[in-house]
Design a binder for these strands. Structure first.
Length: 399
RNA sequence: GGGUAGGUUCCGGAGCGGUCAAACGGGGCGGACUGUAAAUCCGCUGGCUUACGCCUUCGCAGGUUCGAAUCCUGCCCUGCCCA
């Protein structure tokens, strides 16, 4: 049996960065029991990737693990199909069982970039919810009131605006609460927006005669737009599996105003108010890339960033290579379209590319191409800049 | 079940027989500036086309008309009030 550090020392580490703890006193008491606490974090595999926003709570769980506690990672194989209505003004699209399970697999793998495998229990809430009878569901429902459920900000707002709330949506907090009972959670981690759901868990535990879980809520990380919560569906997320270059770039593009928050939530550090924001951002980007890839990758990404964007030296920068197929017409339009597709997997319509070119986005060796139909005489190593952040190096096919 | 108001392009929201690929705002993208920041200014924002132009879109299906997002019929969906 492992020796746990003294509860007060643990408190010091664990409370750091938390926005809200209900209640610190309860946590202290649990720590004083000197046993491994069961620390719950529920994630819904609604999309296959996790992003930096998710890692905030994962990192907190890791801190618990490093102190000897047990992380209980609940993959919401069932709840993902319902969709958490938290912070939503629209009903979530429901996923199929297959989609959810596939997502769960990759999700799990990614979570272990942060978590300690040895001290993690992974469970699927479908294990109990898929088996529940209607009768049991009703019984569970009778434990809460409609008014409690509808008190939630997001529901209230929808009611006010005349937007529909489907009956299944109010089940979400109920299910999340039941999860806590099923895993006998001592602590539940989540973002501040999870307060309501976590409290339902406490009610259920009380009802079942279990000790109440402590709620530890982390601030919500904003996305690359610096305003809204990081979320894949809002398109402002930085995924943990993104390529080093891309990850680095996205971090560089966050507004300065979000920098402090990123430092606190991702690095657990306070920002030096005297340092230049850009330098701090580079430091942040470097460390995040190093965390999810490697120091070598981070160094390379930094160097390339400096060459490409600070020195604006596309000629020597590391760029994706593009070899135009032999039968491809060498007009600006066709070449750009092919480069987007083969190097970035993007398939903008030809009209869209035409507009980009006419708008001056596309450059060939530093010169704007404004005529979509102009023919480009390809040279070995020539640089085709597609837009603000994308460029490719042309390598003609050897004949 | 009854009454009533609605369903428009990513979102909000105009349009109410031709001049509508559809005002305006937001968001997004691009350009200038810059630190891939912020602010500001400018442009773009259905598809195909070198272009004239053609094609698909206004909940769904039919219909009336030379012509429909706009009128008619049926259906589906949503809010609100009543039960």
């Amino acid at each position: 049996m492992r020796e746990f550090p003294n509860p007060e020392d643990q408190m010091e580490v664990l409370c750091r960065g938390c926005e809200k703890i209900l209640t610190p006193e309860e946590l202290r008491q649990k720590l004083a029991e000197r046993r491994p606490l069961r620390v719950k974090l529920g994630v819904d595999p609604t999309s296959p990737d996790i992003h930096l926003g998710h890692t905030v709570a994962l990192a907190k769980m890791r801190q618990f693990q490093d102190l000897g506690h047990t992380g209980v990672l609940i993959l919401g194989s069932f709840t993902a199909m319902i969709g958490d209505p938290t912070g939503r003004s629209v009903t979530r699209p429901q996923l199929t069982k297959e989609e959810v399970l596939a997502n769960a697999a990759t999700y799990q793998e990614q979570a272990f970039k942060v978590l300690d495998f040895e001290r993690t229990e992974v469970v699927f809430n479908g294990d109990w919810f898929f088996k529940m009878s209607y009768e049991e569901v009703l019984r569970l429902n009778s434990l809460v009131t409609m008014q409690q459920m509808l008190q939630r900000e997001d529901f209230r707002e929808r009611i006010e605006r005349g937007h529909p709330i489907r009956a299944h949506e109010i089940q979400y907090p109920i299910m999340q609460g039941w999860d806590s009972v099923m895993v006998r959670a001592d602590v539940e981690l989540g973002g501040t927006d999870q307060l309501f759901n976590v409290l339902v868990g406490r009610d259920f535990q009380a009802h079942q005669g279990q000790p109440l879980q402590v709620a530890m809520l982390m601030p919500i990380l904003v996305g690359t737009d610096g305003t809204q919560k990081m979320s894949k569906s809002l398109g402002n997320a930085i995924g943990v599996t993104e390529e080093p270059e891309q990850m680095f770039g996205k971090i560089m593009s966050i507004p300065d105003s979000a920098l402090r928050q990123y430092y606190e939530l991702l690095l657990g550090e306070t920002l030096d108010p005297n340092a230049h924001p850009m330098e701090q951002k580079k430091n942040l980007a470097y460390r995040i890339v190093a965390r999810f890839h490697s120091h070598a990758a981070a160094k390379a990404a930094l160097d390339n960033f400096v060459t490409r964007f600070s020195k604006r030296d596309l000629a020597t920068a590391e760029l994706p290579k593009f070899t135009p197929p032999p039968n491809l017409s060498t007009t600006a339009l066709s070449l750009t379209a092919a480069a987007y597709e083969s190097c970035f997997g993007l398939t903008p319509s030809r009209s869209e590319i035409r507009r980009l070119i006419q708008g001056g986005s596309v450059q060939w060796n530093g010169k704007k191409l404004t005529n979509p139909n102009a023919t480009i005489s390809i040279t070995d190593g020539g640089v085709l800049k597609l837009d603000k952040i994308r460029a490719v190096r042309i390598i003609p096919q050897k004949s």
